[in-house]
């Protein structure tokens, strides 16, 4: 399988099964519409006749030979070696956990999938230290021989329950030596309750921190008001800058959501960079289509154009000003994730679970409150392995739409929660998310192509 596209003045060719990426001329681009394996020794006469109206016959023959050579080298129309590895996609130890440490929030973000902290459960509550400790014990037990474990403090707003966050970290650390484990903690916060003590603790203990902000003040404040209705932008930007300035080289992200209200979201990304943040993620809203801010298929042309604009702006920024990293344009063409991750993605429901304040276990934070996917309860010592096995076997070869998609080894079958919420089945990818994902991937590959060209030119000039 191949995928080819035109973007940024380039003709780009991806060999899906090998991951090979090529920049091709117009002739190759057109010729690939007319030939495919099994290749004849020479370019078929009807193809020569057809394309000779635009290109020279000698060039067509030469180009055909190049295509056949790459095919013989196994980097064009290459075989699919990955399906055999899908048999390895079996139930794994649990190695990551999302702790809903606070099922409550001091903000009222309009698009919040957690329904401003309540998770649709109609009540607000904080996780007790006792439940948090049981969750850590569960993770240690279910992680079997895995040494490296991740715990994400999530909400609602986790800083509403900061004392339990601190004591949970302390408790987990106390188990590391005894059980030969290494905990890595992350936290996602809206920033309102950040102060010097919390910043110091987060920067000491949290391997990564996600700081929620949507971008420009008017964009952020429209969707992210406080419980009292006023905007949050002015209350958080200085605190975020303070946290990041003290963080050294540890990971962080400022993370925003774009909606139908800011389809010009490239301006929000660049605004966040202008505020001094280098690590930025701005992602499409997940919302019921009946809401006025939900994205729809009619928005796709504008969204696509905006990602192209963003790629241009990032290129220009890097050239003129310095570093910027946009999460969804990150692409490692040299190595990237291992095969199982490429096939199965985040590991939700299998390697990764979420725990509610009441000790209920779900496949991930977005499934919390969906009774059908409640996997068990810490107090009752229950854990549904049938659900775990269902998620373990949910990969790009068991999702029929994914199996034939060119982007499958990069998107890994999409988000199981989005699939369920939008399509009622974790195996049915949400088409709108797919289209956006594919566009981002094309932009990311284009940026790599430009990087390659630039390096190539520099090498030639230096030699």
């Amino acid at each position: 399988m191949i995928h080819k596209f035109k973007l940024g003045g380039y003709n780009i060719l991806l060999d899906v099964n090998s991951g090979g990426v090529h920049i091709v001329d117009n002739l190759t681009y057109d010729l690939l519409d007319n030939v495919q394996p099994p290749f004849e020794e020479k370019c078929p006469q009807d193809v020569l006749t057809k394309l000779s109206k635009v290109y020279k016959v000698e060039d067509i023959k030469e180009c055909y030979d190049e295509i056949v050579l790459l095919y013989e080298q196994g980097v064009l129309y290459s075989s699919d070696d990955y399906e055999q590895y899908s048999l390895k996609a079996i139930s794994s130890p649990v190695k990551a956990m999302c702790l809903l440490i606070a099922q409550d929030c001091n903000m009222r973000c309009k698009y919040c999938f957690a329904e401003t902290g309540e998770y649709g459960l109609g009540k607000r509550m904080l996780m007790s230290l006792e439940t948090a400790k049981k969750a850590i014990d569960f993770l240690v037990e279910k992680s079997a021989n895995r040494k490296n474990l991740e715990v994400d403090f999530f909400g609602g707003e986790p800083l509403l329950n900061f004392d339990v966050v601190k004591k949970t970290v302390e408790y987990a650390r106390s188990l590391e030596k005894k059980f030969d484990k290494n905990f890595r903690f992350t936290i996602t916060t809206n920033g309102l309750l950040l102060d010097d003590d919390k910043i110091d603790f987060i920067n000491k203990e949290m391997y990564n921190v996600v700081l929620s902000i949507d971008g420009r003040k008017e964009v952020n404040d429209r969707m992210r008001p406080l419980a009292g209705g006023q905007g949050s932008y002015d209350k958080i930007t200085k605190k975020y800058a303070d946290l990041v300035s003290k963080r050294g080289d540890k990971d962080y992200y400022v993370r925003g959501t774009y909606t139908k209200y800011n389809l010009d979201f490239s301006n929000d990304v660049m605004h966040l960079r202008d505020l001094g943040f280098e690590q930025i993620s701005v992602e499409p809203v997940v919302a019921d289509k009946s809401t006025p801010y939900a994205l729809s298929a009619t928005d796709l042309p504008q969204i696509f154009e905006e990602y192209e604009k963003l790629a241009d702006k990032i290129l220009k920024y890097k050239k003129e000003k310095g570093f910027i990293n946009f999460f969804h344009f990150m692409l490692d063409l040299d190595q990237g994730p291992c095969a199982i991750k490429r096939l199965r993605g985040c590991g939700s429901g299998n390697e990764y679970v979420a725990v509610s304040p009441e000790g209920d276990i779900y496949p991930c934070h977005q499934f919390v409150g969906i009774e059908e996917y409640k996997m068990g309860n810490l107090d009752e010592h229950t854990f549904n392995y049938d659900i775990k096995n269902e998620f373990a076997a949910a990969h790009v070869y068991t999702k029929s739409d994914c199996k034939k998609c060119w982007a499958k080894f990069y998107c890994s079958g999409g988000c199981n929660a989005n699939n369920y919420i939008y399509c009622g089945d974790i195996h049915k990818p949400h088409k709108l998310s797919c289209e956006i994902q594919k566009k981002r991937l094309e932009c990311a590959i284009m940026l790599k192509a430009i990087e390659f060209e630039s390096k190539h030119q520099n090498d030639e000039e230096n030699s």
Partner: peptide
Amino acid sequence: MKHIKTINALT
């Protein structure tokens, strides 16, 4: 290669 420039073989 005159027509195809390879940037980078999918671990």
